[in-house]
Every structure is written in structure tokens, then in C-alpha cells.
Design a protein around this nucleic acid. Structure first.
Lengths: 232, 232
DNA sequence: TTCATGCTTCGATGGTAGCCGAAGCATTGT
DNA sequence: ACAATGCTTCGGCTACCATCGAAGCATGAA
């Protein structure tokens, strides 16, 4: 028998539909009350209470008392990241919960995944880069081409040496939560997101803990000019 | 009700201890037969078969027929990544599987993790490197210092260019199974392990499938001289 | 062919965990 | 003080699913 982290325990926590619903509801980074989460999961408050204690014991959520309400939020971005990963795997195998209602359209359109851009726009960006041969993608491997380097230097003032990192690959395909497509991660993904912020094209939502990325008017235009697919 | 990928389904797959054991056993990237996985998980072949079909249906593992054996492997790196993430969450909250009794002391002392050294000695080695500023570690990021490069060249004949790899970081902190501490992974971790083998300091145990690493008498001395903490 | 090995399917069993109703605290408001 | 709201605890019910024995296929060996 093995020792090591009890991966089954934390996975089992996410493995229950009711709890998964709650966690998904929390993935936009905002805190919700126990009752809201109960309604979100379609269960009674008693049951929700039980689930929430388990999630808390497992370190996936953190409570915050406020008056007679109890707000719960995801513990940190790592949790959100793992949930995104799980969602990616589920989406890839075609196991979608059928309804496609843009529950939180902003989150679906553009959000932070670790430190890079995810959501519709993130996927669109990688699509654009790939179709113009600025990057080459083979399965999970992405490589920056020479044209790609020139493109980055010219339009975003990003030079290759800014991207080298002992531990982290320059490019990486990261499976998107909402779409079942890849978006761009790695030091390049992070650098581009950072540049978008510096250029005031986009910024993380002000609400603490929110993972939504808001694009400015001009930012959206510039982004579309660089990575647009003509449909925007 | 929500839209989006059915995260609960895939999480539930990992959430069963037996299945989690199998997945963990597959995390070194090698394919294992159904029986091996059954033994690994401590269940009968029938039960394992049932689990494996579910894992396959969920897209987490892929089978490969070979003679009358059926080899299973993780579908791809995305799966391994999510599993690592889960392990990270579990480890962080202190939920380790407390497997009583050092079942295999040799395994606990020195073993192969992927392709690098893990266990007591692996942790000790990284500790030593860090305390002598041969590497700098910030959270999970490890960086080789200039002194570190000189040290490697002098004592282990490892040059920086041997370590560069398009997709893999040179250094990486890898969470240790038995200890709750980090040991050194990445191309450097692999290169050092390889060098230990070449120098006949240590070798993987002869038993097929075993992950134990046996140090020779002189190997242990040399290792202690380089990375010892005085207590050995 | 006959036997052995590896794996799967079938059927039955038992333990576990999700679920809700009712009751119990806690906080806030009147 | 009393009531209302929000959440938790308790007890019992139910459904699901992991598990294993036995039998059934498939592949390879003799």
C-alpha cells in the first residue's frame, strides 16, 4: 500500500454532484452564502450544511462569518485551477452537462487561469496564433516560430529572453474550462496577459477574488485587431 | 441547474480509493497490466476490471492490448497534471494517507520518482543544495545558481547544456511521497540520478517494477560527503 | 486438442453516504 | 422579550456502488 497525499479524499469531495455544483458556483471567485449554495446545488440547507463542512474540512472552501450569514469562497486559486483541470478533462471526453446557458457570461468570455488569459478570448487568441503559424502546436506541445517571435516583438514588445524561465515552459497548451479547447499558458501566456494589463487593454475585476478579466473598449478593439477572427 | 462540463463525474472516478491507487501507480508514465494495477490497489482482478472500464469510459486511462495482457496508461499529460494538482491540494491540507509502519524502509529511504531520486535521500539532497545556496527555491520554483553550476561541473561532471530541454524545466520541486517535503525533479534531478548510476553509487533494484534505489557502500559515502547533513 | 493464464461478465451482498424532516443554536430586528 | 432568519445537528431512510465468488471468453503454450 501507498503512502502519500490522499488524492482520493479530495477527489471524492469534488466527486459528489451537489458539492461539485457548489464549487462550480464559486469558481468566479465570489463568496456565496450557505443558502445560496444550497439553492445553486438544488438541495435543502441541511444537506448543504453537511456538504460545506466536508468541503471546509478538506480545505477546498473557506467560511467567513458575517452577521447571521456564512459566506463561503474557494480557498485559493490552486483550488480553482484544479477544478478547471477537472472541467477540462470532463469536457474533453464529451461529458458535458447538456444545457449551455451562459451562467456567467463575463467569466466565460475572459478570465484568469493561474496567470494567463482563459475563456473565449483565450481560446480565440491561441486559435489565431496557430492559424497564422506564429506558433506550432502538436498535441500539448506548443512552439513559438520565428515569425511568432517577430510578431510578439513588434506588436507587444515581448522579447524571447523575457520568456525564458528555468522551471516553466515558454508555451503550454492549457485545457479550457468553458470551451473544450486549448488556450495558451506558459511564460508566454503570462507575459501576454501582463502586457495586456500594462497597456490597459484589460484588467482583473476589482471584486476581490474574482477571476473575471474585463477588457476596456480600446483594449477589446486592439485585441480583436491582433487576434480577431472577423466575427467580433 | 448548471451548464458546463460534468466535473463531478470525472472527480468521482478519482474519488474512489482503489481507482486513485491505480491512477497514482500510473503516474510514472509507464503502462501497467490490469493485474498489476489490481495488486497495486489491493483488490481482486474482477473489481479492478470494473474500475478500469470506468476509468476508460471517463477518458482517464487508455488500454493497449498486448498478447493476453492488457496494459493501461494515463491518457495524456493533462490527466497527470490534474492528478498532481489534486495531490497538491491533499498534501497541503495535511491529508496524507497515514499508512502505518514503514512498510518498506528501503523504499522510504531512496526510490525512483519518475526518473529522479526521491525518499529520505532525495529530500536530504535538495535540503543540502538549498542550504549551501547551490540552488535557490521559492515555493515550487527552483533555480540553479552560478555556484551550483560550478559545483555540478566539478563533482558530478554535469554541464548546463546537458540539462536544457525544450519542454521540461531544469529544476522542479516535486512533493515527496513519504516525506511531506520537496525533492529535486526536472532534467537536473534526472541527470544527477543518472550520474549516480553511472558512477555505480546507486542502482535501481533488480526486481522488475520495483522503484527502490539501492546505494552501494562507497556510493553512500560519496553521497554523504556531497550532500550529508552530518547526521548520517 | 487440452491446459494455463489473463481478463471480463454476472449476481449477490454489505457498507457507506446523500438526503430530508424536525428540532436546536445563533444572530438580528422590532 | 419575542419573533424571524440563517444555519447546524440529529435520526432514520434509501439508493448507490465497491467488493468478491463463480463462471465465461480470449489468448498463448504444450
Amino acid at each position: 500500500m501507498k503512502s502519500g497525499p490522499d488524492i482520493a479524499m479530495v477527489a471524492a469531495l469534488v466527486g459528489d454532484p451537489a458539492r461539485a455544483n457548489m464549487l462550480t458556483a464559486l469558481m468566479n471567485g465570489r463568496a456565496l452564502t450557505a443558502s445560496e449554495l444550497a439553492q445553486e446545488a438544488g438541495i435543502t440547507p441541511q444537506t448543504a450544511s453537511s456538504h460545506l463542512s466536508k468541503l471546509e474540512a478538506g480545505g477546498l472552501v473557506e467560511p467567513e462569518k458575517q452577521g447571521r450569514h456564512r459566506y463561503y469562497r474557494l480557498t485559493d486559486d490552486d483550488v480553482a485551477g484544479v477544478l478547471e483541470g477537472l472541467a477540462g478533462l470532463a469536457a474533453r471526453t464529451g461529458h458535458m452537462r447538456v444545457r449551455t446557458g451562459p451562467k456567467d457570461p463575463a467569466l466565460r468570455r475572459a478570465r484568469i487561469c493561474y496567470d494567463h488569459l482563459a475563456g473565449d478570448l483565450g481560446v480565440q487568441m491561441l486559435d489565431s496564433l496557430r492559424s497564422r503559424h506564429l506558433v506550432k502546436q502538436k498535441k500539448q506541445d506548443i512552439e513559438l516560430t520565428a515569425e511568432g517571435e517577430r510578431f510578439l516583438a513588434k506588436h507587444l514588445q515581448i522579447s524571447p529572453e523575457m520568456l525564458s524561465h528555468p522551471r516553466r515552459p515558454v508555451c503550454k497548451a492549457c485545457l479550457d474550462w468553458s470551451e473544450r479547447r486549448h488556450h495558451l499558458a506558459g511564460t508566454l501566456g503570462a507575459a501576454m496577459m501582463q502586457r495586456f494589463a500594462e497597456l490597459k487593454w484589460a484588467a482583473r475585476d476589482a471584486t476581490p477574488g474574482s477571476r473575471v478579466v474585463n477588457f476596456t473598449r480600446t483594449g477589446e478593439k486592439q485585441f480583436a485587431a491582433l487576434f480577431g477572427n472577423g466575427k467580433d
